[in-house]
């Protein structure tokens, strides 16, 4: 790692101020991506601003039809939350499948979506469930938040504070994990929400995306066979040593059908 300064502010205002005072500041949430990239010198930070002491950023609350997860809430806490298991079981299940137990004890929802790794699980939940991302400056709808590979609508120094999920009527997430890293080779969230049926795919493309064709077909008939044959062109999908674009295109259909079948 290159050297850096370390700050551990107690308030959101101080964290944002510290970031503004430095050219190359990095926010540190769970560190499960930031620390490995710093170790590999893929990234340099003049100052690392640890968000771990800001109490307001952490925690889970359910009120009415909304589940709100604070930005520095770790995956293990989302997975184990009785409130989330009751309100949005698919969200708890998704969190329980991220990485491994040690990673889930550190990694956070805010860190995951701000990083926007193309193979991360949370973007599928945020887009699939039609969540709203709250930041230190504004609120951003899920459809506007993820803009490209490792890119989001966040401006420099803008910090995710919480994510609010409207409770869907029903939802399921199915993923085909890389057997070593547990990252999604393809992950599909299917949700029946007050905004309509939503199908969000992670792992397959440069960034999470929806499949309007499947959403329309499922609106007419919510059965797995309704989306059989609705293909995503492999041209825009990722290819690597683990899976070709064609294989990922195939897996999207399989995972989407399984998610619909799971919902029943």
């Amino acid at each position: 790692m290159y050297t850096f300064d370390y700050q551990r502010p107690a308030t959101l205002a101080d964290a944002v101020k510290l970031h503004g005072a430095s050219d190359e500041a990095s926010f540190l949430a769970g560190g499960q991506t930031l620390i490995p990239t710093l170790k590999q010198r893929l990234r340099h930070a003049s100052v690392v601003i640890d968000l771990g002491a800001i109490a307001d950023l952490k925690g889970i609350s359910v009120s009415g039809n909304t589940v709100t997860v604070g930005a520095t809430t770790c995956h293990a806490d989302v997975a184990a939350s009785a409130d989330i298991k009751r309100a949005i079981p698919a969200l708890a299940a998704l969190a329980s499948g991220i990485g491994d137990p040690q990673v889930r004890n550190c990694g956070t929802i805010g860190g995951s979506i701000a990083n926007n790794d193309p193979a991360a699980d949370y973007p599928a939940a945020v887009v699939g469930l039609g969540a709203t991302v709250h930041t230190s400056k504004r609120t951003i709808t899920a459809d506007d938040f993820f803009t490209g590979m490792f890119e989001t609508a966040l401006e420099p120094g803008e910090l995710v504070t919480k994510v609010s999920f409207p409770v869907p009527r029903r939802a399921a997430y199915m993923k085909f994990p890389n057997p070593a890293s547990r990252y999604a080779i393809v992950g599909v969230m299917v949700a029946d929400t007050s905004m309509g049926i939503r199908v969000a795919v992670t792992g397959a493309g440069p960034c999470v995306f929806r499949i309007p064709g499947m959403e329309q077909a499922l609106t007419k008939s919510f059965v797995p066979s309704a989306i059989k044959g609705i293909a995503v062109p492999p041209g825009d999908l990722n290819g690597d040593i683990h899976a070709t674009p064609e294989y990922r295109a195939h897996l999207i259909g399989v995972m989407a059908e399984r998610a619909v079948a799971m919902i029943g």
């Binding site: 370390y6 620390i35 293990a76 040690q102």
Partner: peptide, 19 residues
């Protein structure tokens, strides 16, 4: 490198000492 931090398992190679 797994250790327990406040009772929870973490990977100590992916955690800063200052944290």
């Amino acid at each position: 490198c797994t250790v327990h931090l406040d009772g929870r398992s973490i990977k100590a190679c992916t955690f800063l000492a200052v944290q």
